[in-house]
């Protein structure tokens, strides 16, 4: 029995959530194969080997130059026959490709899985439901179990012993129908500065409590007053377009583990918490003393961040000049 992991890449290699998924896959105890669709960056095969993949399946060619979920699914299906579990990271891409695969193989899929174990012929999984307020135990039966792994459910860790993967090119039959849904254009967004966020010593987190796109001035000033500090935000903030996506912390954003995380106006939903829970010290600033972020933090100040943060900045400036 082997597990197949669909890997997403960027210029530097397998993305963090895909490396987490490889780590998760190793936890099942079976041999792990990786599948890469389209061009991969230099060094990718070695990196996948470091994460324990013994085989790297590679689908390449004209059908994959522009992204189409259906074409990616065709690639995964062409390789799925030999595997008892197929998984991807719980990104929009991972979710949709695995769902397409589920349709093609007439199989059940579990999304946002946080743990999995073999149970006879099936797989017993626990997955996040209800926006993370509850877990669902679910059984995946059938010849192949399909799942996506919730972002940051595990920490990405290389295998104890690196493998030297065998690279196998895949011959994929992609139909015209699969290419109807190709991306026809892309537009660049704001430059991605999430590297700065993940390496910061202090992350000043801001959530809906910031109030509006104009509500970040004091928070940004606080990052200037602290040593190597960056702004991180909740998904509400990026969804509302207040701040760019590369600043998002959480399951569908970056995972940070700074010395200090200052959570301002963030309720502490599980999807946010998984992205910052490994911070050494957590300070919450919130109007609600019962917010999960407050009860789970090490330190908290209760009140309006728009009064408290300026007062902190003022005190920092006063001591710096004093």
């Amino acid at each position: 029995m082997t597990t197949l992991v669909l890997v997403e890449t960027d210029e530097s290699g397998a993305v963090e959530v895909s490396r987490e998924t490889l780590t998760f896959a190793r936890g099942l105890g079976d041999e792990v194969h990786a599948i890469v669709v389209g061009d991969g960056p230099a060094g990718l095969v070695e990196q996948l080997g470091a994460y324990g993949a013994t085989v790297v399946l590679h689908a390449d060619g004209d059908a994959f130059t522009a992204y189409s979920a259906a074409a990616w699914a065709a690639a995964v299906v062409s390789a799925a026959g030999d595997h008892s579990v197929v998984m991807a990271a719980g990104t929009p891409r991972g979710m949709e490709v695995v769902a397409h695969v589920a349709c093609r193989l007439d199989a059940t899929m579990a999304a946002n899985v946080v743990s999995a174990e073999r149970d006879g012929d099936g797989l017993l999984v626990a997955r996040q439901v209800l926006g993370g307020s509850a877990m669902e135990d679910m059984r995946l039966d059938g010849s192949v179990a399909l799942l996506t792994v919730a972002g940051h459910a595990v920490e990405a860790k290389p295998a104890d012993a690196a493998a030297t993967p065998e690279v196998r090119p895949l011959d994929v039959a992609v139909s015209d129908a699969d290419l109807r849904t190709r991306v026809v254009r892309t537009e660049a967004g704001e430059p991605d500065e999430s590297g700065q966020l993940t390496s910061a010593r202090v992350v000043v987190g801001a959530g809906r409590g910031a109030g509006s796109a104009d509500g970040f001035k004091d928070l940004l000033e606080l990052t200037d007053l602290l040593d190597n500090a960056s702004l991180g935000v909740s998904r509400v903030v990026t969804s509302l377009g207040w701040r760019p996506h590369h600043e998002q912390v959480g399951q569908t954003g970056s995972r940070v583990s700074p010395d200090l995380y200052v959570a301002c106006g963030i309720s502490g939903a599980i999807q946010h918490w998984t992205g910052m829970s490994s911070s050494k010290t957590i300070l919450a600033i919130n109007t609600d003393p019962d917010a999960p972020m407050v009860t789970k933090a090490h330190y908290a100040v209760i009140g309006d961040l728009h009064e408290i943060v300026p007062a902190i900045n003022e005190e920092l400036r006063r001591r710096a000049n004093g």
Partner: peptide, 27 residues
Amino acid sequence: SQVTILGEGPQAAAAVVDLFEKLGVTR
């Protein structure tokens, strides 16, 4: 919950900056 409440409102600023200094994260 093991949270230490540093205070309420802007009056807590001094306690917060004390914490920053203890953690060595001020400039």
